[in-house]
Amino acid sequence: MELFVERLLAGVTNGSIFALLALALVMVYRSTGTLNFAQGEFALFSAFFAWWLVGTGLPVWAAVIAGMLAGFLLCAAAERGLIRPVQKKSELATLIVALGLFSGLNAAVALIWGTDTKVMPSIVPNGLDDYFELFGARVYGDTVVTWVALAVVTLLMTVLFTKTELGLHMRAVADNAESAALTGVNTSRILMLGWGLAGAIGALAGSLATPLAPEQLSVTTMFPIFIGACAAALLGGLDSLAGAVIGGLIIGVVEAMVTGYVPLVGGAMQQTTAMVMIVLILVVRPNGLFGSKELERV
């Protein structure tokens, strides 16, 4: 029982990180209609920035917020300056710009901060004794922070999209940018904002993930997380925010359970098992669990 709860909680924690980054991916998809391959590296850059700020003596929470701000500006600038000009040309060109950003940002991080592993401090105390027990399982501060962060972000996004005019505009642009522009929505600003929010959420995911990640903070930290987030976003349905959260949690828990309880595949093939399950789900539901079906007019 203890072990089960421990595995479940570990899965939920990993899943929360996947879910946060998946939310960022969904935000971009709703704005631009493409998968942002560089989302993980945007998050990496912001996390390194936050780490650097901590080094200058800023409190960790302030550094994380500054990192989110940096992520916001970086992503919004990328949308305006790099993505939008090529978006009209072709969908595949957008993808290549994202790939260029992917390798460029990764190398930029290595260039500015070096390739050695950094230790990003946690927002809350995370010593060996800083835990409380839940059904006999130890729960550390770090993990609670990721759950809370996911809950808060999800809540804020829900409020934004359902209760504010800005959210209404964003939904309108996601649905049909041209119609939205005709009714007076400033689509240009909305697109930048969508990317910016994605960058900020990604930065939060990056900063929270690094104390938990096996590699701590290094240039390779975000790639496996990004892959998990991609899978989460697609499992949930690329245009569904709720889907991203649920997809992320499912993937985290499934990976943890497979590692724990299926000795044949064990730790060696956890990602494979998770991916195969996702593919099977997609065969039944080709647009993810909550994604909307693409309509094609002929």
């Binding site: 260029g100 390798s103 260039l111």
Partner: peptide, 13 residues
Amino acid sequence: GPISGVLFGVTLI
């Protein structure tokens, strides 16, 4: 070092 990686990304874009 890493500058070549940055240049590669820039060239791609």
